[in-house]
């Protein structure tokens, strides 16, 4: 008999510390304060420079606020969809990484490493040019607009990072859990879904949320490929206002501020969870 087949337990003998699988970027409160200060100071300076006939920078921001915010909502939508798609596929990849079948593990490993070690912008271009702009299915033509391609592009690194998070969390569960489940006649699938993964949840949540912050911030890369998200709109607004250089800092500062206001609470929550789980583990 092949012991590897009968003993999935032996395949996971190591108990690894769970390292964040990517460099952790931490937003701090002072980042937001600094940005806010830039917006205010730059706006003030711009008022001093500009004549009375021109709209003040605050005025420009107010005027274009609905458009800019709609762009920001688009960024959030892209990030949420990329995160959802990436998480579902990444979970499958992570489960494949601990499969009992060697070729399945190898495939998962190769895919994960490839997409984890590629620059996000390159993956975005990759998705832009390799995914067709429409898709024919049973005579029905489903269009693939750029923003959907962007979602796919961002979901690739998410997928790879989620795969790593899932694999690490599963490996961190002691072998005794597998053994006692086996001895109670649980199948491998039941053990995974009822016993192992629920215990992984709290280990996975903080790195997963951190990943979400990163994805949200990365969505501005979509401007490079022409998706009308906030950064694209900001530069269009700037052009529409005559390209006045004194508007650059306030407009981009406003964009920064939007991201900060959205991501900072997520980051705080992540750290609170991390701390709580560390205490309880």
């Amino acid at each position: 008999m092949n012991p590897a087949k009968t003993l999935p337990v032996l395949l996971s003998p190591r108990v690894e510390r769970l390292h964040p699988p990517f460099p952790v970027f931490r937003l701090r409160a002072w980042h937001g304060l600094a940005v806010a200060a830039i917006v205010v100071v730059a706006s003030g300076a711009a008022v001093a420079q500009g004549g009375p006939t021109q709209l003040s920078p605050i005025g420009v921001i107010m005027k274009w606020m609905p458009l800019l915010l709609s762009g920001f909502v688009f960024n959030i939508a892209i990030s949420l969809m990329a995160m959802t798609l990436g998480t579902v596929v990444g979970l499958a990849l992570g489960l494949m990484a601990v499969s009992e079948t060697m070729p399945v593990r190898k495939v998962s490993w190769a895919v994960t490493q490839f997409f984890r070690n590629s620059p996000w912008l390159v993956l975005l271009f990759f998705a832009m040019f390799l995914v067709p702009y429409e898709f024919r299915l049973l005579g029905v033509t489903v269009p693939f607009p750029d923003w959907i391609k962007a979602v796919i592009g961002f979901s690739l690194p998410v997928m790879a990072n989620v795969s790593e998070i899932v694999r690490g969390a599963i490996r961190s569960i002691p072998d005794g859990q597998w053994e006692s489940a086996e001895a109670l006649a649980f199948s491998r699938r039941q053990t995974m879904w009822m016993i192992i993964l629920p215990q992984c949840l709290r280990r996975m949540l903080p790195p997963w949320m951190n990943l979400y912050s990163l994805v949200t911030m990365a969505t501005v890369l979509a401007s490079v490929v022409g998706v009308s998200e906030m950064l694209t709109l900001t530069s269009q607004v700037h052009a529409a206002e005559g390209g006045r250089p004194e508007l650059l800092a306030p407009l981009y500062g406003f964009a920064l501020l939007c991201f900060f206001v959205y991501c900072y609470p997520i980051d705080r929550l992540t750290r609170r969870l991390e701390h709580r789980f560390q205490v309880r583990l």
Partner: peptide
């Protein structure tokens, strides 16, 4: 090789040194 392991384990209970209760 054709043994139904799950059927066997329904008849044979086992208790370990490290208890291995499900913590959740």
């Amino acid at each position: 090789p054709k043994l139904d392991k799950l059927a066997l384990r329904r008849k044979v209970g086992m208790v370990f040194q490290q208890y291995n209760l499900f913590p959740h």
